[in-house]
Write a protein that binds this DNA or RNA. Structure first.
Length: 293
DNA sequence: CGTTCAACCTGGGCGC
DNA sequence: TGCGCCCAGGTTGAAC
């Protein structure tokens, strides 16, 4: 579920945990993935317990907690990939049985009196496809480095896209989901970006011209930026929420995603749903034209 | 290089 | 009611 805007909203919401100490770690029914730091859950909990949250960052669709070590030891990073249904929560979860990670938080260094910060951080994931990795500096590079993730969607340029996709035979919609090409776009935003760019999602990348790449890059930044300002897209119950369990508001701005058979807001033609690379694609067959170069 | 498929999981919705 | 099927915001690896 969460794409860049949702993950960015999570990260911003986690600002209050920066500086806090991790007093306890539990991994009920979670998937801990192999990484250069490869402890089991027990050892992982032991390595994380007692560290302080130094920073919260986002790379693509990943949440990264930077954990400072005891003096003299190196930093570690907890990398969380929410995948389809994962949520970071500072409040009670929708259901207790789907909580995958519990970080019990204590006050900032040296302060325990009058502690009003968040008492715990939860990773809740109904489907359980999300992943948690503990990484050292090398592992962080392997998990989130430039070999894995392309330029961030909020800053991507036409030159970035053109350099990576110009000669690709893939359909542009499929290519926009490739995190090595551009990091952070998922199924909702790919559809919305291409609608606003007026480009048919089936267009082969190699058929696109400079003007197309300019439009796609500009709309990528605009759509993702607007979605961040509206705190992401919440569709349905027990779906994406902010860390306080509030709903996002960008779903009201969706022009094509999830709107099969409804009239296009621009031309009135029914929105079409097709399948590309095993994923639904929504577009307006009239407003979005096929690039043929 | 690219596409397709299965797999990883849970749960809501729909037709019968 | 119940069953089977399809669907879902993501990613990976194998097969072709």
């Amino acid at each position: 579920m969460p794409e860049l805007p949702e993950v960015e909203t999570m990260c911003r919401g986690l600002a209050p945990i920066v500086g806090r100490r991790i007093a306890a770690v539990e991994f009920p029914r979670s998937r801990v993935r192999p990484s250069p730091v490869r402890p089991g859950r027990t050892a992982l909990a032991r390595r994380v317990t007692g560290r302080h949250v130094e920073a919260v960052q986002r790379r693509g669709k990943r949440v990264i907690l930077e954990l400072s070590g005891p003096s003299g030891s190196e930093a570690l990073w907890l990398v969380v990939e929410p995948r389809m249904t994962g949520l970071m929560l500072l409040v009670d979860p929708p259901s207790p049985e789907h909580v995958r990670l519990v970080l019990t938080l204590a006050g900032p260094r040296g302060h325990s009196l009058r502690d009003h910060g968040p008492r715990r951080l939860l990773f809740w994931d109904r489907r359980g496809l999300g992943t948690i990795r503990l990484c050292d500096a090398r592992g962080l590079e392997a998990a989130c480095g430039s070999r894995v993730l392309g330029p961030d969607g909020l800053q991507v340029t036409a030159a970035d896209l053109e350099a990576r996709l110009r000669s690709s035979r893939r359909a542009i919609k499929v290519a926009l989901l490739d995190q090595r090409a551009v990091a952070g776009i998922g199924n909702i935003y790919a559809a919305e970006i291409l609608f606003r760019s007026r480009i048919d999602p089936r267009s082969a990348c190699r058929r696109l011209r400079r003007e197309h790449w300019e439009r796609i890059a500009a709309e990528t930044r605009a759509v993702l930026g607007e979605a961040v300002r509206l705190e992401g897209s919440s569709i349905g119950d027990e779906t994406y929420r902010t860390v306080d369990a509030r709903v996002g508001r960008f779903q009201t701005r969706h022009r094509v995603y999830g709107r099969a058979d409804q009239k296009c807001g621009v031309c009135g033609t029914p929105i079409v749903r097709i399948v590309q690379a095993q994923r639904a694609t929504f577009f307006c067959p009239r407003c979005q034209s096929r690039a043929r170069r």
